[in-house]
Design a protein around this nucleic acid. Structure first.
Lengths: 352, 352
DNA sequence: TCATACTTGGAAAGTACTTTCGTAAATTTT
DNA sequence: AAAATTTACGAAAGTACTTTCCAAGTATGA
């Protein structure tokens, strides 16, 4: 046996053709099941390939076909349950379509982010699934995104002037309905802790205000505090300040479940009982809402479906792009998936 | 201008050489800053490359150098805060070393998992960072892992017979010390909710038992319930059953913070006050521990450092592998990062 | 036995580069 | 102005394949 080099390199067609005494072309045909190879020859090649653990080099396929079967995934942070579910949905669809994700993170400076994105272009990913950062994408970033000329699908968060396909949640409706839920319970002094500078924050604020205005309830500017840095304990401080005032709100609509959790902590620390003294709502319906006491009234989103739909759409676009190149100038699609208010223990009728 | 084809394909060296009227080789040298090109020619090529937004094809580099500058990342699930931090640490190191991660998920059947892993081999990733699943890897999986002959580094969770480099936490020590903390507070009736079938679960159980035995405290089998399916509400049910008994434990050492959170919920639902009636400890020191009321006494791990160290080690191995091929048969490294008990409000002296 | 048809395998081109080597052109020296 | 030296550029090979086309080789029918 001439197995000099079975050390640690993966064997190539070249080596197999040497070992079997046939040409590279024949080995290729044999392994890919193409006709034109005698069955005895094919068997011989197959068994050698098996013995030497041949694995085709997909980088070569990628170059030849002009299609890498990879997609870029720009993801905010990994520890986030909501974002994690979106990614799970994406990965499920990608996997079954035999695409692999190259992941880049937003936990980078602007320059680094641009480099990461450029890397996706240089690796010739067939498309990009974009989970935008809490901050707006910067100009150099958007420019690099334009240079990448494959399809792009954005999820969860938009930015002004974004011309890409988008999948998100009915944030405004969710905030509207959950606010209405509080109003129907008799609440009038309702605060909303919003997330500044992002589209979901703006939409939820809009929905909140819509419900308040519809019911003719005054909106106090001081009861619309905004979180500047997501991921800190700012929500706790904001809630504590809101609730420390003698004229405190009787209900708080929090931007999302993690924020609501910090509101619950602040209420607890101030000796306020939920829901007797204060009603609290979240957004997202994460697992945590069911493990908190009181269990959290919240707006259920469907992050898995967002991820799945976004990935499916991206694959469609890739398909369309490769069969008929040249931009398929259909105007960007925007789908907002329905949400549902889940009433649990953290909201109750107002008590005076 | 002969820009017939600037439609949507990224321009190639070939096209640039056409446009500039020089050979491909010259373009290559000009763009990569190699000598042997007149500065006027270089400028001309550079400006054309800039105008047409040239981006080198890294797939070609990968084939030529036999090094793809990618690593595989097998990750359990994305929504998990602990896992997310490990991944953040990994990504940080990989990014700065100009490696990109191809992520595959464990939320797959056995066959699918093997296919995902095979895909990594076929894409010629230079190494694999492995965050093992809650279940043990199956034989076909381990076999596919062997076929991939680059370096592999495992984090957090081991499996029997694993011969790869490993970075984890001092699970046994953490459980030991936090149990001792409870014992010093006067507790004798201490239960441990363990996670069955995984190495961290076993280590924490070992540590728990070590502390108990050292202090001559009897260990009741019924107070060592195991979670079979991580990610469900099984911990809640287990805690509720433990605490419903007339002869209930006065302290519970939970496998980790999410489990401890469910224990707190069960205690709350049974009218038990924490820490007056029951002390609870977690493991991990996730953000959630600070937002719970009472705040959770826990064992702080350092997942970012685990991720960083694992990635650094992997890159070392890749480097060593490419300079001196043939397995560097050093016996596998195992580093367990220190942990620290963080005492908060969920543990207190026993009250009778 | 010879012509025809079919089967089998090989050579070569193409993918997007890098790198080496050789040669022509430009520049400097005599 | 001719020779020597330096510089600039191109041709070609190599990377690991797929695919097409072509030339043998084999089997079949007259």
């Amino acid at each position: 046996m001439t197995n000099i080099d079975q050390s640690n390199q993966i064997i190539s067609l070249d080596r197999i053709s040497d070992i079997c005494g046939v040409s590279i072309g024949t080995v290729s045909k044999a392994l890919s099941g193409k006709p034109g190879v005698r069955s005895t020859t094919r068997q011989r090649i197959l068994s050698v390939a098996e013995r030497y653990r041949y694995r085709p080099n997909r980088l070569v396929h990628a170059i030849q076909r002009g299609k890498s079967m990879t997609v870029g995934l720009t993801c905010r942070n990994f520890g986030d349950e909501f974002g994690g579910r979106i990614m799970s949905g994406m990965l499920e669809v990608l996997f079954h379509a035999k695409y692999d994700p190259i992941v880049i993170s937003w936990e980078l400076s602007v320059n680094e982010g641009v480099r990461a994105l450029r890397s996706l272009t240089e690796r010739r990913v067939d498309g990009i699934l974009m989970f935008p950062p809490a901050e707006l994408p910067t100009d150099p970033y958007l420019e690099e995104l334009r240079i990448f000329n494959g399809p792009i699908v954005v999820v969860d968060q938009m930015w002004p002037g974004c011309r890409y396909d988008f999948y998100g949640s009915q944030d405004a409706e969710g905030a509207d309905v959950v606010t209405e839920h509080l109003i129907k319970l008799g609440h009038r002094k309702i605060a909303h802790i919003q997330l500044s500078n992002v589209s979901t924050g703006q939409s939820r604020l809009d929905g909140f205000q819509r419900a308040m205005i519809r019911h003719g309830i005054a909106i106090h500017e001081k009861w619309l505090p905004g979180i500047e840095h997501y991921g800190s304990d700012e929500p706790y401080k904001i809630a504590r300040e809101l609730l420390s005032s003698p004229d405190r709100p009787t209900a708080i609509v929090a931007f999302n479940d993690p924020v609501a959790m910090q509101v619950l902590a602040a209420a607890h620390d101030l000796g306020l009982r939920v829901p007797q003294d204060l009603s609290v709502t979240g957004f997202g319906d994460l697992d945590v809402t069911r493990h908190l006491r009181p269990m959290l009234t919240t707006v259920a989103q469907n992050p898995m479906a967002i991820g799945r739909k976004a990935a499916e759409r991206l694959l469609q676009q890739i398909e369309a792009n490769s069969t008929a190149p040249g931009h398929p100038v259909s105007s960007p699609l925007q789908e907002l998936l329905p949400v549902e208010v889940i009433v649990r223990q953290s909201t109750g009728p107002i008590s005076r």
